[in-house]
Amino acid sequence: MTGIKKRRTTIELEESLYKRAKALAVEKDVTLKEIISEALEEKLMREEEKKDAENNDFMDNTLALKIIKEMERFLSREAAILLFRNKCEKRGINPKKITEHIITKDCLESLCNGITYISSVSKKECIEALKKVKERA
């Protein structure tokens, strides 16, 4: 296996910030590099989540959220969201307002068609999985 590629960089920090970060590194018995990497990772993740939330305000809908979660068994979260949103748009459905009555068998089949273009799950297995989510809702 090849290791993760790393890149060297130089950054300037305010004296007080540097001291606080250094103190935390000593306290946690890790390097300053690890503290900075972790902080940056957290910041990037928060920004991604914020962007996700802006683009996907339909995630407030519990059923939509549960369907996406189930789709994540077969696709990445990003692809699952794109597919779900597109399918809703193409059917003129507002994803924020979906209910178990709107998510018909036809809708589930259409989602699974999209999923099985790339995932090795069978269409039957996919439909069964999404149907269970709908039934539990």
């Binding site: 692809a79 794109l82 068609n113 273009y117 995932s119």
Partner: peptide, 30 residues
């Protein structure tokens, strides 16, 4: 697996939309 059809499924329905590197990364990821 038919990834051209998959790409069509996830692309926004906008006439002038062009799939860029982010879509390449997403497809490779899938």
């Amino acid at each position: 697996k038919d990834i051209a059809s998959f790409e069509q499924e996830i692309l926004p329905e906008k006439e002038d939309f062009v799939p860029d590197e982010s879509y390449f990364r997403l497809i490779i990821k899938e």
